[in-house]
Structure formats: structure tokens, C-alpha cells
């Protein structure tokens, strides 16, 4: 916009051929005016466009729905359920003893995205994470008993072959990070609120 102000000045200068140039002081004042007008016009335009852009961000009602309560009491050992939170699947698995041991025994140096199992769970038997592959957003397999669980006994994303372990950590494949842990809290022993 400031550029437009300058162009305005230049082009105006072109049309101004019939007259000798105004005094230097007049020129400066005029350029300042053009610059000021162009600058304010630019600021105004950006300020006017921002609401249009921001209107595409999540609205207040969408943000307000960002918590889901889940009753875990029907879930048994070795069973997984999938619930929806913010339109995405959340994997909830009640892990068996061997799964927990396996997850805790992993050498952190072997992990592409090193993270202890303890850092990923609040209670060892409950693994709660977003079921969205960190590669390109597919939903990994492994929730249902017959699903492929990948080479590490956790989850397997069929889109591009990412393998996750029993803690939902990436072990092999193109995904860059572990499956994300959503914010959640236990409001009772078997009741959580996600979000």
C-alpha cells in the first residue's frame, strides 16, 4: 500500500510536466501525505480483512464443546473403545499386564520419539490417546480384536505403514511422533473427562 502511495506520487509526477517542480519543501510534504494515506489505507484494509479470516477459525460453540465425559466401567482388561472428542477418535484401552510390562521395558534409545510409558498414562492400565496417526491423520488399526496391530503389538496405520507399540509410541514407519495424548482427568475411578 505504501508502494501504491509512491506509485501514485510517481505517476502524478509524470502528469505534472507543464509546470516547473514545486519547492522541495512542498514535495516533501506531499510525499508525506501520500505515504500517510497509503499507510493508513493499508492498515485499514488489513483490519477489515482480519474479521473475514478470523471468522473461519473455530467458533465459540465449537470451542465450548471441547470436553467429553466417558464412563470406563464397562471396559474390561485387553479391551479397547473408541469415543469422539472434537470430531476425532480417542482410543481408550485397558491394557493387560504383559502389555504394560512391554511398554515400560522399552529402551528409550530405540525410540524415534523418546518418551517413557509413565509419561503417557495417568494410570498404567488406562491408555488414552488420540486415534489420529501423526503422519497424515488416518485412523490406525488395532482397536478391534481382529485388527492388525503392527510389529509392536499396538496399532498399525494402514495408510502409509506406521507401527505403534502398546504405549502408542511410533516405532517404525513415516509418522514423526507418538500418538498424541489428549488432556483428560479422572473425575471418578472409572470416569474420565477428556478436554
Amino acid at each position: 500500500m505504501a508502494a501504491i502511495g509512491r506509485t501514485l506520487g510517481e505517476l502524478k509526477g509524470m502528469t505534472d510536466t507543464a509546470r516547473p517542480a514545486h519547492g522541495a519543501e512542498g514535495e516533501t510534504r506531499r510525499d508525506f501525505l501520500y505515504l500517510l494515506a497509503g499507510g493508513m489505507g493499508a492498515v485499514g484494509t488489513v483490519a477489515a480483512v482480519w474479521p473475514l479470516v478470523d471468522s473461519m477459525n473455530p467458533a465459540a460453540d465449537v470451542l465450548a464443546l471441547a470436553s467429553t465425559e466417558v464412563d470406563l466401567s464397562p471396559v474390561e482388561d485387553g479391551m479397547s473403545i473408541t469415543v469422539t472428542w472434537r470430531g476425532n477418535p480417542v482410543f481408550i484401552r485397558k491394557r493387560t499386564g504383559p502389555e504394560i510390562e512391554e511398554a515400560q521395558a522399552v529402551n528409550l534409545a530405540d525410540l524415534p520419539d523418546p518418551e517413557t510409558d509413565a509419561a503417557r498414562v495417568q494410570k498404567p492400565e488406562w491408555l488414552i490417546m488420540l486415534g489420529v496417526c501423526t503422519h497424515l491423520g488416518c485412523v490406525p488399526k488395532g482397536q478391534k480384536p481382529g485388527d492388525p496391530k503392527g510389529e509392536f503389538g499396538g496399532w498399525f496405520c494402514p495408510c502409509h505403514g506406521s507401527h505403534y507399540d502398546t504405549s502408542g509410541r511410533i516405532r517404525k514407519g513415516p509418522a514423526p511422533t507418538n500418538l498424541e495424548i489428549p488432556p483428560y482427568e479422572f473425575i471418578e475411578d472409572t470416569m474420565i473427562r477428556i478436554g
Binding site: A37, M40, G44
Partner: peptide
Amino acid sequence: FLLVLTGI
């Protein structure tokens, strides 16, 4: 803002 801009 518009008053100032229009004045300019």
C-alpha cells in the same frame, strides 16, 4: 479511524 483517513 475513517474520519482521519478520509481527512487525509
